[in-house]
Amino acid sequence: MHFDYQMALGSFLVAIVVGLTGMGGGALMTPMLTVFFGVPPLTAVSSDLVSAAVMKPVGSLVHLRRGTVNLRLVAWLCAGSVPTAFCGVLLARALGHGSHVQDVIEIALGVALLIAASGLVIRSYLTMAAGGPRRAARATGSPEDGASPAAVSVRPIPTMLVGAVGGLVVGMTSVGSGSLIVVALLALYPKLTANRLVGTDLLQAVPLVWSAALGHILFGDFQLSVTLALLAGSIPGVFLGSLASSRAPGGLIRWALAFVLLASALKMFGVHTTPMAWALIAAVAGGTAAWSLLRTWNGLPPFPLPRHDAPSPRAVPIRRSEKDPSVVPH
């Protein structure tokens, strides 16, 4: 059995993105297998889901130990996603290879991802403009970094429906356990902090992907050699990405989410690798310049500066009349 080291390296890089942002697994891994390594689409979907069934628990365990998971959200999402994920595999088999259905789903996902990325940028600007220079400088223009987890009120029925739709799409295409459900969670729970958004999505994806993976092992085109190469890279990659996500500032994660949303949307629209790379470079360069101008227009420095205004715990101001013997009180 031949082991593909290049495939393992690609899986490692994608898994870092998955651990950091909670998304991009199916939206990046499956296209990588088909475009760069010539893996047949059904084989790519099956092998990706089986490897994700092992990879996802690694990243979610890091977030679970650090408390960046909303367990009630996870429970309601799984109530909808687990049964429909298995049914999605059966539906894909009933439709043949499902290429036309997959094309329609990919276009719809691309539109949703672009809307979500735009929404993140707009919310960041509104928070910066309304929160005042002090908060904007502290949060680097990112929304709701300090939102309290208690402020999130779970909505059971809409959450379960999101899980059901996400599970069906994942079972058919392997895409959506991160991208589609993250988009829906952003819309349903705008007060959910970035770290908890990533942690919650990673944990809910575990039983979802297990269900879909079981269906593909039984009815799909699972290949052990492809899965082993994916696992060799994805397990350390998702661990490192999750560790960085659980420690990183919420603002940094939200900008990473916006970047991955854009990249995934371009891939869903079928943009080739070289044009996509130039588009992402242009987006980063143009976005950075535009954001700097917006900060300046709102009375802030072009780039967030390190805070030096917080007093040191030892630098407590004292009255000279009490401590300085050279000052005689009147």
Rank of each mutant, 00 (worst) to 15 (best):
Q223M: 10
G98Y: 06
P149V: 08
V54K: 00
L114M: 13
V209W: 02
S124H: 07
H330K: 14
T173F: 08
A258F: 02
L42P: 08
L120V: 15
E322H: 09
L120C: 08
E144T: 12
A79K: 01
R66T: 07
A52D: 08
V14E: 07
A94K: 13
S153F: 04
L261P: 03
C78P: 00
S148A: 14
R65T: 05
V62R: 14
L186M: 12
I217L: 15
I281K: 00
T84P: 05
G119R: 15
P156K: 00
F303L: 12
S99L: 12
T159C: 00
G215Y: 04
V328A: 12
P57D: 15
A282H: 04
W278Y: 14
L266Y: 04
A258L: 04
F259I: 06
D145I: 15
I107M: 11
P156A: 13
A229S: 15
F36R: 15
T200R: 02
R307P: 01
G131C: 10
D201Y: 00
F259L: 12
V169M: 14
F269T: 11
A139Y: 08
G178D: 05
V17Y: 02
S124Y: 05
R65N: 04
R314C: 03
M128K: 03
L9Y: 04
A151T: 08
L257H: 04
V284P: 01
A147E: 08
G241L: 09
V152I: 12
S81R: 03
R307M: 03
V226A: 10
A117L: 05
R155W: 02
V284N: 02
Q223W: 07
L208Q: 07
V271H: 06
S51M: 10
S46G: 13
M7E: 09
L293P: 01
P57V: 14
P207V: 09
V182W: 02
G237S: 11
A310W: 09
T288G: 10
A75R: 02
R254V: 08
V39M: 11
L180K: 09
A52S: 14
A248R: 00
W297E: 01
T173R: 08
P207N: 05
V62E: 09
A283S: 07
L73D: 01
T30A: 15
T200P: 03
A117G: 11
H97K: 10
L49I: 11
I281V: 14
V14G: 05
A129R: 11
A15H: 05
T200C: 06
H97Q: 13
V39W: 11
D309K: 08
L228F: 05
Q102P: 03
D221G: 06
A258W: 01
L202S: 08
I318A: 12
A15F: 05
A205E: 07
